[in-house]
């Protein structure tokens, strides 16, 4: 440990507080039972898919295209996931096979 016990507790609480604020803001600003402005209803409809798109990129943000293996394992695995999922529509199958391929690629092929 680098910090004292008290300092560590304070850091943990500071991070917790930051997280809580980001999670509760929307619900505090637009409480239950009250009508929200139409623009919020519009955003509530549109944001789920947008944020999933953001998350997809967020998950892949640390890949560098210019450094070996150039994101090829990720690209191949995601391609397989997309094809398999459009074909079979089985969530667990797509995730399981896609992850297995990725592990195989980075452990055996792209070492």
């Amino acid at each position: 440990m680098y910090l004292t016990t008290m300092q560590t507790v304070i850091i943990i609480l500071a991070i917790t507080l930051g997280t809580i604020i980001t999670r509760f803001t929307a619900f505090v600003l637009f409480p239950d039972g009250k009508d929200h402005p139409p623009v919020i209803d519009y955003l509530a409809r549109m944001l789920p898919a947008s944020m999933m798109g953001l998350l997809v990129v967020y998950c892949l943000k640390n890949i560098s295209v210019f450094v070996y293996p150039n994101g090829i394992p990720e690209l191949l695995s995601i391609l397989l996931i997309v094809i398999l999922h459009l074909w079979k529509r089985n969530v667990l199958l797509s995730i399981g096979v896609g992850t297995a391929l990725y592990m195989f690629l980075i452990q055996v092929i792209f070492i």
Binding site: T22, A26, I40, L43, A44, S50, M51, L55
Partner: peptide, 11 residues
């Protein structure tokens, strides 16, 4: 910060 938008989406 992304949680802010999750909140709006889950209202």
């Amino acid at each position: 910060a992304r949680h802010l938008f999750y909140g709006i989406a889950m209202l």
